[in-house]
Design a protein around this nucleic acid. Structure first.
Length: 682
RNA sequence: GGGCCAGUAGCUCAGCGGUUAGAGCAGGGGACUCAUAAUCCCUUGGUCGCGGGUUCGAAUCCUGCCUGGCCUACCA
């Protein structure tokens, strides 16, 4: 087989929050495919990047009290750490906020200009006069014009399901500032996608670039009518790239995000002495995108259109997958099923999640359910009980002698496994991982009875039978290794341990058709742990956040179960007057700096901002409950007129309000978004 | 309202025109003790969502209905 040259991308995660197990479905799926192709001897470059532009990033950075650049740098670091934890091994991890991306955006943009695809149109949009920014629909709330339900988003009503323009909302309010938005007109730039209608019809409906259901979806929803113009600009202020020939306008995040694939490849090329043209402008290179079904639209219409007009190579295939549900339901923060990569890894082994996903993933875009019950059973039964068990019951007999010099007669077991390699490879190639896993596990189901019947542990008691024992175990361990080679794209860590056990690296898929002989075997060590359901419970508990933080929980009528203990521990005090209360000047403040006081057991030194240049230094006894870095940027409520107090470590100019008995059980009072530092609490 | 997908043993799924419908897990019985209470053997269990049709023959094709999921409903 001729080696193929393959460029693989996974969707760019938005730099607005942590990676969670739902994201991981995609990155694991893609990484498995990449590892598989490499093992087959193909040339693969696997790139990704953080998607860093847009209004949401500005808001998050602003809330955290840092610049957008600082914010995205922090998120990028977290994302890359999480991917590494789960064995997702990119060749290059870039950022859409990179010079390479800016340059490529400009290049593609000028192509679109040259092709006369860009038109200007005035757009009326709501504008927040306090924040000085235009508002996307989701940043406006108000009363539904149809049914009168309060507190609905700008584009549709949760209560009655009607859709409308944010301008129709009754009493609209900006969620950023609380101000009443006004209507303003701005000039936007549009891509006249309709000019590409025929090309997109042809590209989406032929050539097997898309799963059939996606092709049907596009045909039914978009390609039946003239394609609408695509609004690709946003007026300042906007965190992104300013459009070179349209000052004051910025490329919409969805314009520059997919170009980030190319930019990330460009970075890789620069670092490895390769030419970008070979990867993006050469028909010999296969480009494969892996994405979730939510972003189908961008990757199957705009993106091919842009590439086509700008003279880049079109994707060979866009692989689209469904979403993750947990225990049959959408992930939920209040139920503890909104599990971040970091939290998962704190409690469970990352590689077994890869196995579970693989055992459920198919080539269709169906949703995938993570049932923890099934998860534990699958790992224990398949991996520990069947696969790893093969090694653990044979390796120790081989440690003293090594493998037999010639591969013994095994009744055709190894040969059968080698033959199955073709079918397993085909399943991987088609992203039909659950089929691949089924086929591989069948091999383990054949291998265990062989070992059972041959019973080397009985023969081992008779020194006369030493050769026979070695032969049987040579067979057993080779069958094990064959299985591991097939599983290695899914379980690279287990594959690595196996390489060390047998002192032989796995370098190619075809290693599975040549048994090892004569080599030594290391002392057997545990390869994999069974799942302890206590760890799953702890992980779910760890993922739970108060119901109030979960928007979806509001709709599902949460049940509270608040006991009387807290009140009993600290009974209510005597009544005070409003004047008494007014003596205490509570203010919203932002933590702009936080550091641990090394000599103090309980104290953190906080610098609080009351807006403008007003700063207060406060020592707070919350060391056991909060990490300084987690506090920077957040809003707190402080007692601003408390008499300053000299402490051993410096002057404390106020105090931060918090509840809880103390120690690690301290909970800072939060402030709903919209509040500004310096505002008084009444 | 429209579209797509699925409905097969308690659970997860395979089979997608051809003998009495399969696997894994779970359940029941036994064996073994090398191995992470792992493994092995035997076994219980299904009018293949429901009704029509095509065919010598249908879980498998067509059609209607029911149920569930996802996507849409003139936003992308």
């Amino acid at each position: 087989m001729n080696p193929r040259r393959i460029l693989v991308t996974a969707a760019l995660p938005y730099a607005n929050g942590p990676i969670h197990i739902g994201h991981l479905v995609e990155y694991v799926q893609t990484d498995i495919w990449v590892r598989f192709q490499r093992l087959r001897g193909h040339r693969v470059v696997f790139v990704c990047a953080d998607d860093t532009h847009g209004t949401a990033i500005m808001i998050s950075a602003n809330k955290a009290g840092v610049s957008e650049e600082q914010w995205i740098a922090r998120i990028s670091e977290q994302h890359q750490r999480d991917f590494a934890t789960f064995g997702v091994d990119f060749d290059n991890y870039g950022s859409t906020n990179s010079p390479e991306n800016r340059e490529l955006c400009a290049e593609i943009w000028s192509s679109l200009r040259r092709e006369n695809l860009i038109v200007e149109k005035d757009v009326e949009q709501l504008y927040d006069p306090v924040k000085g920014t235009f508002l996307a629909d989701r940043f406006v709330k108000g009363t539904c014009p149809k049914c009168g339900a309060a507190d609905q988003y700008g584009d549709n009503c949760d209560k009655c399901g009607s859709t409308y323009s944010p301008r129709d909302l009754i009493n609209p309010v900006s969620t950023l500032s609380g101000a009443q938005p006004e209507v303003r007109v701005a000039t936007h730039l549009f891509v006249e996608l309709e000019q590409l209608h025929e090309f997109l019809e042809q590209w989406t409906q032929s050539g097997n670039h898309l799963q059939s259901e996606t092709a049907n979806y596009l045909k039914g929803h978009f390609l039946g009518d003239p394609l609408r113009d695509w609004d690709v600009s946003r007026p300042a202020p906007y965190f992104g790239f300013e459009i070179p020939d349209s000052p004051g306008n910025y490329w919409y995040v969805w314009f520059d995000a997919p170009i980030g694939y190319i930019a990330s490849t460009a970075q890789w090329c620069a670092a490895h002495g390769e030419r970008l043209e070979d990867w993006w402008k050469n028909p010999e290179t296969e480009i494969h995108h892996f994405i979730g079904k939510d972003i189908t639209y961008f990757h199957t219409l705009f993106w091919p259109g842009m590439l086509h007009k700008a003279g880049f190579q079109l994707p060979a295939k866009v692989h689209i997958h469904g979403f993750l549900t947990v225990n049959g339901e959408k992930m939920s923060k209040s139920k503890g099923t909104f599990i971040t990569a970091e939290t998962y890894a704190k409690h469970l082994d990352p590689q077994v999640l890869r196995y579970y996903f693989a055992s459920k993933l198919g080539p269709r875009l169906d949703d995938l359910d993570l049932s923890f019950d099934e998860f534990a059973k699958k790992i224990d039964a398949d991996l520990v009980g069947k696969v790893v068990n093969l090694a653990s019951r044979t390796a120790k007999f081989l440690a003293p002698t090594g493998l037999s010099p010639e591969y013994p007669d095994d009744g055709g077991l190894f040969e059968y496994g080698a033959k199955q390699g073709a079918e397993i490879a085909e399943a991987y190639e088609n992203c039909d991982y659950n089929r691949a896993v089924r086929l591989i596990l069948e091999l383990a189901d054949r291998a265990n009875p062989f070992v059972e019947q041959a019973a080397p542990w009985k023969l081992a008691k008779d020194p006369e039978q030493a050769d026979r024992v070695r032969d049987i175990c040579t067979i057993g361990i080779n069958l094990y290794r064959q299985i591991i080679i097939y599983l290695s794209p899914i379980l690279p860590e287990l594959a690595g341990k196996t390489e060390r056990l047998l002192g032989t690296p796995i370098t190619h898929w075809n290693d599975a058709s040549a048994p090892l002989t004569g080599s030594s075997v290391a002392k057997f060590e545990h390869l994999m742990k069974r799942i302890d359901t206590k760890d799953i419970d702890a992980m779910i508990e760890d993922s739970k956040t108060p119901a109030a933080e979960d928007a979806s929980a509001e709709a599902t009528a949460p049940t509270w179960n608040d006991g009387p203990e807290a009140l009993a521990a600290e009974p209510l005090t005597e009544t005070c007057t409003i004047e008494d209360f007014a003596k205490v000047d509570l203010r919203v403040a932002r933590v702009v700096a936080a550091e641990s006081v090394p000599e103090a057991n309980k104290l953190l030194k906080l610098t609080l901002s009351l807006g403008g240049d007003e700063r207060r230094q406060v020592f707070a006894g919350i060391k056991a409950a909060y990490q300084p870095e987690d506090l920077v940027g957040r809003l707190v409520v402080m007692v601003a007129n408390l008499a300053p107090r000299k402490m051993r470590f410096g002057l404390s100019e106020g105090m931060v309000t918090a509840a809880g008995p103390g120690g690690a059980e301290v909970f800072l009072l939060g402030v709903d978004s919209g509040a500004q530092p310096g505002q008084r609490v009444h």
